[in-house]
Design a protein around this nucleic acid. Structure first.
Lengths: 127, 127
DNA sequence: TTAGATGCAAAGGGTTTGCAACGTC
DNA sequence: GACGTTGCAAACCCTTTGCATCTAA
């Protein structure tokens, strides 16, 4: 994999935000640095970064994918009013995984948890 | 909401399968009973059933949505080799929810868990 | 009778891809 | 110089929607 300007910029944007952005948001940011970058390239770079494990793709209900540039053992909580996504530390222990393994016969490799609620901003705006 | 043939057929199909099918699978099945049903109608019926809480829509990574006609307090495990989806009882307790609430400031209303692993069939085929 | 549901086909919208030009290694 | 990457635009594919028609209540 070559270390192109486009790749550097996309990775940089993802690593310097906590907003779990969509591909087109990344594209808009990237254009501020590289005005000629194309949306197709953003998607291709995101795809490669994901294969390499540097980025995680989230499917949180809506049609657009969101991307997390700080992968690790954490999960996400989505605000059901505004769609804002925040990180949550993993509260699932391995006892739960073992129970799932026993109950289903599947070999459990990972889990993905999404909490759904209302973020403080939305709750304050309309209690 | 009117109780049309189309609605009955779609709900029936969903309630009589454990496969968490995609919209076009439901469409193919429905055509065996109502040859003139359209894909648009399948989508509209699925949308309404979801609003009514009779069906739950899953976004499990791939681009197609899958639908669960037996909603309830259970989650899903997805086979990373074949994409098969199975049900898992909820192993997340409310203590975990409270921890998330305290950690994030969000009011937690629900959680969605997806386990990822390898199903018995795939594992047996290629240990 | 009539408001809501359907079938059809076209439009939407996010994502992917073919291809020639480009830029790393 | 070779080959992976890019920009562009068109293609893709799942899903939604407009509209005339139909049908459950």
């Amino acid at each position: 994999m070559r270390n192109t300007k486009q790749r550097q910029v996309v990775l940089d944007i993802l690593r310097n935000t906590d907003t779990h952005p969509t591909a087109d948001w990344v594209y808009e940011q990237a254009r501020k640095v590289l005005p000629n970058i194309s949306l197709g390239t953003v998607y291709r770079v995101l795809g490669r970064l994901q294969e390499e494990g540097l980025v995680v793709q989230l499917d949180v209900g809506s049609r657009k994918s969101r991307f997390d540039g700080k992968p690790g053992q954490h999960q996400h909580i989505v605000c059901e009013r505004c769609g804002r996504v925040a990180d949550v530390p993993d509260v699932i222990d391995h006892i739960a995984s073992e129970r799932v393994q026993n109950l289903t016969g599947y070999r459990v490799h990972a889990h993905r948890v999404e909490w759904i609620g209302v973020c403080p901003e939305c709750h304050n705006a309309q209690p």
